[in-house]
């Protein structure tokens, strides 16, 4: 199970090793990337394993960010403010999922879409202006964690990286646990899951709340990276980019969220001159990836060696092919199917 985590762990280690050689600005971009990757890991969990398409994950990031920042501005220590912010995002996910878990597919996605609009509307609107700062948003007090100043981009980066690794580890452990198998069965067929004793509605609510909480972690990290937060940072567009990123990276692949977010964070950096056309670039990347690599960039790369092996094997075997014999139930125990 944990070996599936090796590629992502190696990627994080590489980032950790090269980070000291980067400028403050570049590390700031990396923190931004890691914060979004954390939220993307949570989003990938529900899309790829539980078939729940969410357009509200930037809104959960907003809840984590706004709650922690508001508490810090009221004198709370960063660690406690962050924990309450993350819990708030999880609770919001829990409350949203209670009615939404009765829906599926397109209807579920629409509800999350509406939720996102409500959250960003509240954050930017005049109703909560005294708390959330309206359109101008809030400045973020620099946090301190165990005596370390998170205002330092390198310190913040390493904290973010540890959180990303921990999040990926928790998600992988869960996916291959009893609970994970249950919600993966639910994805295949809710009737089968129910008939095996799984509380499908409870499972959906639980996994969605966890996913929202993880997005909240991303939100807290992002708020520290930006130094100021406002509603557009967590807009519906951001939620859509998260969905696009996990799809482009490769749904259900441990490296998928990180690779997808890297592509979508680095693209604007690379195409700075095309600001007005950035949406076109995003759309083009999304469409081309879906056509060329339906299993995402990671899926394409990981399937490449086996495709080459198959082509080489076909050449070696001739037109007859190989390995076409499938195991039969009628064979005896001595001819067990090899794994």
């Amino acid at each position: 199970m944990l070996r599936r985590q090796i590629p992502a762990t190696v990627a994080c280690l590489v980032l950790a090793i090269i980070a000291p050689f980067f400028s403050g600005y570049a590390v700031g971009v990396l923190v931004h990337l890691v914060a979004l990757a954390i939220a993307a890991v949570g989003l990938d969990l529900i899309i790829s394993r539980a078939n729940m398409l969410s357009f509200s994950h930037a809104a959960f990031m907003a809840i984590g960010a706004y709650v922690s920042v508001i508490l810090m501005r009221n004198g709370w220590e960063f660690i406690f403010a962050a924990l309450v912010g993350i819990a708030s995002a999880a609770i919001a996910g829990f409350l949203l999922a209670i009615p939404a878990s009765r829906l599926s597919g397109f209807s579920f996605a629409l509800v999350t879409f509406a939720f996102s609009a409500v959250v960003t509307g509240l954050a930017a609107g005049s109703q909560l202006i005294s708390i959330a700062g309206g359109e101008s948003g809030l400045s973020v007090p620099p946090g301190k964690l165990f005596g370390l100043n998170l205002f330092n981009p390198h310190t913040l980066f390493y904290m973010a990286l540890v959180l990303l690794l921990a999040t990926m580890l928790v998600c992988t452990t869960l996916i291959y646990s009893r609970t994970g198998r249950a919600f993966r069965t639910m994805k295949e067929s809710e009737a089968v899951a129910v008939a095996l004793g799984v509380n499908v509605a409870g499972m959906k609510i639980g996994v969605f709340a966890l996913s929202a909480g993880i997005a909240g972690v991303g939100g807290v990290v992002l708020s520290q990276a930006l130094g100021a937060i406002s509603a557009p940072t967590f807009s519906l567009e951001q939620s859509t980019i998260l969905v696009a990123a996990v799809t482009v990276g490769g749904l259900g692949r441990s490296l998928g969220p990180l690779v997808g977010i890297t592509i979508f964070v680095l693209l604007p950096e690379i195409f700075q001159g095309l600001q007005d056309y950035s949406a076109l670039v995003f759309a083009a990347v999304f469409v081309v990836t879906l056509i060329v690599a339906p299993n995402g960039v990671v899926g394409l790369v990981t399937s490449f060696p086996s495709s080459v092996r198959q082509i080489l094997a076909r050449k070696g075997e001739g037109p007859g092919g190989f390995g076409t014999q499938t195991p039969s139930l009628s064979s005896d125990n001595s001819s067990k199917v090899a794994s």
């Binding site: 452990t173 993966r184 966890l210």
Partner: peptide, 28 residues
């Protein structure tokens, strides 16, 4: 409706869902 990505053993383990006494928190 088996989970193709999982092994035979893991699929059979789904049948033990109601009988395994550990919480999702402990599992995660």
């Amino acid at each position: 409706a088996l989970i193709d990505a999982l092994t035979v053993r893991e699929n059979i383990q789904v049948g033990l869902y109601t009988q395994t006494k550990s919480s999702s928190f402990e599992e995660a």
